[in-house]
C-alpha cells in the first residue's frame, strides 16, 4: 500500500472510528474529517487530468502549484495529499493566499467559501489565466468558477463549467469530464 494509501486508509479508519464512537457527531462533522482529504485529492487529480495551453506559464512551470485563497479548510490534509506526488512529472507546490493581492495564477486555485463574495474580484485578478478555479460555494461554477465541489450522500462530487474551462484554455481530460457530476454544457456561469 502506498504511503498515500496508508494515510488515506488511516484517515478513513480514523474517520470511521469516529463515526462509530460518536454516531451523534453530525454527519457534517464526520464527513468533514473525510471530506477535505478527499477534496484535496480531487484538487490534485484536477491537476492531473488537465492540460494547460502550451505557452502558458502553467505549462512551462517547473512545478505545479495548488493554491488556497482564504481560510484554508484543508489544513494538513492538503499537505499530506500532495506529499511525494507528481503531476506530469512535476512536483507540487502549495501556496496559501490570505489577501487577494497575493493571488498568483496557480495551476489550481481553491477559493475558500468565505471568499465567495469576492469571487468576481478573484476572477478579475486572475484575468483569464488558465487556472483551475475550484470552490465549494453554492453556484461557484455559475459564477464563473471552473469546478464546484459538493458533497452528496456522503460522496464528494464536483461540477465542471466547461465553457469557462474552454474559455480559459484548460484542456480538461475526458476522463475528468466523465466523472463530473454534470457535464456542464450548461450555459450558466460566464
Amino acid at each position: 500500500m502506498s504511503s498515500r494509501g496508508r494515510q488515506l486508509a488511516g484517515t478513513v479508519l480514523c474517520g470511521l472510528s469516529m463515526a462509530w464512537a460518536s454516531p451523534e457527531v453530525s454527519r457534517a462533522e464526520g464527513a468533514a474529517s473525510l471530506e477535505y482529504p478527499v477534496k484535496a485529492a480531487f484538487l490534485l487529480n484536477f491537476a492531473k487530468f488537465t492540460e494547460w495551453p502550451p505557452d502558458s506559464p502553467q505549462a512551462v512551470a517547473e512545478s505545479v502549484s495548488i493554491c488556497v485563497f482564504g481560510d484554508d479548510p484543508f489544513g494538513l490534509a492538503l499537505d499530506k495529499t500532495v506529499e511525494g506526488r507528481l503531476v506530469g512529472g512535476r512536483p507540487i507546490v502549495l501556496r496559501r493566499y490570505r489577501s487577494l493581492a497575493d493571488v498568483e495564477p496557480c495551476h489550481v486555485l481553491f477559493i475558500a467559501k468565505p471568499e465567495s463574495e469576492r469571487l468576481p474580484l478573484v476572477f478579475a485578478r486572475l484575468g483569464g489565466q488558465p487556472v483551475i478555479t475550484v470552490g465549494e460555494s453554492e453556484g461557484f461554477t455559475r459564477r464563473g468558477g471552473v469546478i464546484e465541489l459538493s458533497v452528496e450522500n456522503n460522496r464528494a462530487r464536483f461540477e465542471i463549467n466547461l465553457r469557462v474551462a474552454e474559455r480559459l484554455g484548460l484542456g480538461l481530460s475526458s476522463r475528468l469530464l466523465a466523472v463530473a457530476r454534470n457535464f456542464a454544457t450548461s450555459t450558466e456561469g460566464h
Binding site: 478527499v38 460522496r155 469530464l177 466523472v179
Partner: peptide
C-alpha cells in the same frame, strides 16, 4: 476508461 472513476472515486 476507469482512470477517472478510480481517481475520483
Amino acid at each position: 476508461n476507469s482512470v477517472g472513476a478510480l481517481s475520483f472515486k
